[in-house]
Computed example of a mutant assay.
Amino acid sequence: MKVYGARLSNSFSGVWELYVVTDEMSLHWPEHSFGRTDPIPTLQERADALAKLGYVLADDAGWQWQECPTGVTRRVPLLASANVRRKDGAA
C-alpha cells in the first residue's frame, strides 16, 4: 500500500491548510483550507479533512510538528506532517 505525506501548514497565507503530497512534480495536490488562523485544527478536524480528500492516517502514524523560523521578531510558521494512505486502498 502506497504511503503519501500529508502536511498541515499556516506558512503561506496565514490560514491553516492541509494538503497531501501525491508526487514531487504536481502543482495540484489535494488540499483543504480550514479558513482560519486560530486555533490549530484539532485531530478530528484533520481526520475529517483527510477523509474528504480520500485519505486516512497510515497505520501507527502521528503528526510531527516543526517550526520554520523566519526571524526573531516575525511570526513563526508551523508545519505538521503525517504519513497517510488512500482511504480506498488504491495506489
Rank of each mutant, 00 (worst) to 15 (best):
A61N: 11
D59I: 09
V84M: 02
R36Q: 10
Y19M: 07
V56C: 11
T42I: 05
E17S: 14
A80E: 11
G89K: 06
P77D: 05
S13L: 11
V84Q: 01
R86L: 00
E17L: 10
A47Q: 15
L50H: 03
V84S: 02
A47Y: 02
E24W: 08
E31Q: 11
S33P: 02
G54A: 12
N10E: 08
G14R: 00
V20W: 00
A49S: 10
S11K: 15
V20Y: 00
C68M: 14
A6K: 02
L27E: 08
L50A: 01
Y19A: 09
A47I: 03
L50Y: 00
S26G: 01
A58W: 00
E31D: 11
E31H: 12
L57P: 00
L53S: 01
E45Y: 03
R7D: 04
A58M: 05
H32C: 06
W16Y: 10
H28E: 14
T73H: 11
P30D: 03
Y55C: 05
R7T: 11
E31R: 15
H32L: 08
P39V: 09
G5N: 09
E45F: 02
A91N: 10
T70D: 08
P77Y: 08
G5V: 13
W63D: 06
L79V: 12
R85T: 09
W63E: 06
A90C: 06
T73F: 15
R86W: 04
L53H: 01
T37P: 04
S81P: 01
Q66V: 03
V76R: 09
S9G: 06
R75N: 09
E31P: 02
E67C: 14
G54Y: 04
R85E: 08
A47N: 06
G71S: 07
L18I: 01
N10V: 06
D59Q: 11
P39M: 07
A90M: 08
P30S: 01
D38C: 09
R85M: 06
H32A: 07
D60Y: 13
H32D: 01
A58F: 01
L78D: 07
L79D: 05
I40T: 15
S81G: 15
E67T: 08
E45Q: 15
Q64L: 12
A90K: 13
L43F: 10
L18F: 07
A51V: 07
G35L: 03
W29A: 13
T70F: 14
T37G: 12
K87L: 12
E24T: 10
P69V: 00
V20L: 01
T70Q: 15
Y55Q: 00
D59L: 09
E67V: 11
S26H: 02
G71R: 03
W65I: 13
D59S: 13
L57V: 06
M25G: 10
W65L: 12
G89V: 08
W29H: 13
P39Y: 07
T37S: 10
V20G: 04
P77E: 06
L79M: 15
D48W: 07
D23Q: 10
L53F: 02
G71H: 07
Y55M: 04
Q64F: 09
Q66N: 13
L79S: 05
G35I: 02
W16A: 00
A61V: 10
A47E: 12
T37R: 14
S13N: 13
T70S: 09
T73Y: 12
R86Q: 05
T73L: 12
N10G: 01
S13A: 14
Y19E: 14
R7G: 03
